[in-house]
Amino acid sequence: MVLLATLALLASLLSPLPAAADPSDDSGEASTAGLQAKLDEAGRAYNAAAKALQTAQAQQTAGAAQIKTLQAQLATLTKQLDTIAVNLYVNGRTGGLGAVMNSGSPEAYLAQASILNRLSYQNDTAIDRFLSTKAALTRQQSALNQAIAAQQAQLAIMAKRKTDAVNALVAAGGGAAVDGLSATGLPRAARSGPRGDGCSEKDPTNPSGCLTPAGLHMYQEVRAAGFSHYAHCFRQASFGEHPKGRACDFAAAVSDFGGEATGAEKDYGNRLAAWAIANAGPLDVLYVIWFKRIWMPSTGWRSYSGDGTPSGDHRNHVHISVN
């Protein structure tokens, strides 16, 4: 019995230590599957509302400028109508017989008739222009009111979705506002990329995987910006953006995910996360997770609670999800 117990103890001592959780499988993020689903829903709805708000704001700006132009045109046409009205009053709306009787000669009659005809034409044209401009102004004001209402609706959606995201983080043990990253000398800004949900592009990090056009664009821009450490994008899972081709994990270490990042590796992760946030618009970023913190367009940086491992807490890699 003593021998068996000794052998069992030796076996346990000689057994290899558990490997650090690797984001290429489910072990690093499975515990936050429900949280990721809620963040995905809230984040995508918020970003869609933000884009709709930008459209409504652009429409409001253009509409306000058009209204100003139409108001100036209407003021000019009003002055023209006033001038025509005075001329008609001075010259009178006499008929043909009256014009003959009041004229001293055929030449005078023709001159007066010509003036009356010209004034009548000018009057009709000016009235038409006045009425059409006034109708256009009314339509433009209605469109402006609609744009303002659309803005208010999108702002309400954005506020709700921000609350949804924060509540989801709080329920998972995080959600507190935290300071942003301090990173200097960031690489060039990313160019705007394609949109689309279909996982139609080959994943450069996984021969058997795929990425959406936006996912591939994000990965390519990260590489173009000089972040060359190990990365893994697509993976089979029942949750999150990785199996949809909309997320990549970028290791802080050069060749693998490893343990918690420190020193130069942590600085690398800080710079990569800060760069992704600085280019969130062109990259169409949904959220960025790094070192127990998550950034979303709706919330800014918030605390993030994983499963306690370097991978689950994202202390060894930067996770970037796109719409």
Rank of each mutant, 00 (worst) to 15 (best):
G196Q: 05
R191S: 12
A168Q: 12
T138G: 14
T55C: 09
A153M: 12
A165I: 08
P187E: 05
K79R: 00
N323F: 13
L211V: 04
E41F: 11
H319Y: 05
R293H: 11
P106L: 15
A20V: 12
L119E: 01
S182T: 15
F291T: 11
V166Q: 11
L181T: 07
T55Y: 12
T94M: 14
L39N: 02
K134M: 03
A224F: 00
A64R: 07
A99H: 01
V285L: 09
Y230I: 02
V166E: 10
Y89T: 15
T184S: 04
Y89L: 15
T6I: 13
P106K: 00
G96D: 10
G173P: 10
W295N: 07
L116F: 14
A225V: 04
L70N: 08
R271M: 01
A276M: 03
W275G: 09
G175R: 07
P194F: 06
R195M: 00
V222Y: 10
A159W: 12
N279Y: 04
A19I: 04
Q57R: 15
Q154D: 09
I294K: 11
G180V: 13
Q57C: 05
A214E: 06
D164P: 07
S311Y: 03
L39D: 00
G306M: 05
A45D: 07
S228H: 01
A183K: 07
T69K: 06
P207G: 08
Q122D: 04
Q36G: 09
A11W: 05
S311I: 00
N270T: 03
Q66A: 08
D26L: 06
A65S: 08
A64G: 08
S103Q: 09
A190G: 09
N102K: 15
A253N: 12
A252G: 13
K292H: 08
W295D: 04
E29A: 06
T205S: 13
N206K: 06
N87K: 14
A278S: 03
G193L: 10
G43A: 09
P282S: 06
H217R: 12
D284Q: 05
R271N: 09
A64H: 03
Q36L: 15
Y89H: 14
A33Q: 02
I294Q: 01
G300A: 09
A111K: 15
A33E: 12
Y219T: 09
L13I: 14
Q122V: 14
L169M: 04
Q152I: 03
G34S: 02
L131S: 13
D40K: 09
Q54W: 11
H319S: 00
R293S: 14
A156K: 03
E221P: 06
H229M: 01
M218E: 03
Q80R: 13
G63K: 01
K79F: 11
P207T: 00
G185E: 05
V288T: 03
V2S: 14
E265A: 10
D267A: 15
A149H: 02
V100F: 07
K51A: 00
D40N: 11
A280F: 02
C233K: 02
Q112A: 13
P18H: 03
P282E: 06
A113Y: 11
N145P: 02
N145Q: 08
A176F: 12
V86A: 15
M101S: 14
